[in-house]
């Protein structure tokens, strides 16, 4: 049941409890209890909205930053990751296997704002060895949703 609820609300968090109950063939109370439990357990962390900022007049720049760091004694990467994720402009911080250690995604108002965050704040943190900043030029697909074009039903209208 949890898996099914999650699969649905991952795509559509606005669906209400009654609708969930109908399409999953369960009763509303069960659904409500599951949702509440998953919120409390931190399985469900939020009900965000996906926005294509490109289509608005609001300027936003997103960058992916590869960060190489020196792990600290007893702390590993956690301490420095925390110092990074506490910045509100930081969207996400992942510990990554491979050629670098942390992948940081960052949102800023302009290229300049992002660059200065990287050079002033991120690079100067103790333990940060190097950074490489990649600016996102266009989002084709995000969170499993294709942004580049809309679905169009090209089927014949009536078929046997």
């Amino acid at each position: 049941m949890r898996e099914q609820i999650l699969a649905i609300i991952e795509k559509n968090s606005r669906i209400n409890i009654k609708e969930l109950a109908v399409i999953l063939g369960a009763d509303e109370l069960t659904i409500a209890n599951e949702l509440k439990a998953m919120e409390e357990e931190g399985v469900i962390c939020g009900y965000h909205t996906m926005i294509d900022w490109e289509k608005t007049s609001i300027e936003k720049v997103t960058a992916l930053i590869e960060v190489r760091i020196t792990p600290q004694r007893n702390q590993g990467y956690d301490n420095i990751a925390e110092r990074i994720y506490k910045y509100p402009e930081v969207n996400s911080v992942y510990l990554i296997s491979g050629g670098y250690d942390l992948l940081v995604t960052l949102e800023g108002k302009s290229l300049k704002a992002v660059s200065s965050f990287v050079s002033d704040k991120l690079s100067t943190l103790e333990g940060v060895l190097s950074t490489a900043t990649h600016f996102i030029l266009k989002k084709y697909k995000d969170h499993g949703t294709i942004l580049a074009k809309k679905y169009e039903d090209t089927r014949e209208k009536v078929t046997p």
Partner: peptide
């Protein structure tokens, strides 16, 4: 029925067998 429906551009169809 198909002929009637295809005339109507803005019809919502629940008539498809695929």
């Amino acid at each position: 029925f198909f002929d009637i429906v295809s005339e109507m551009k803005d019809a919502i169809s629940l008539g498809v067998g695929e």
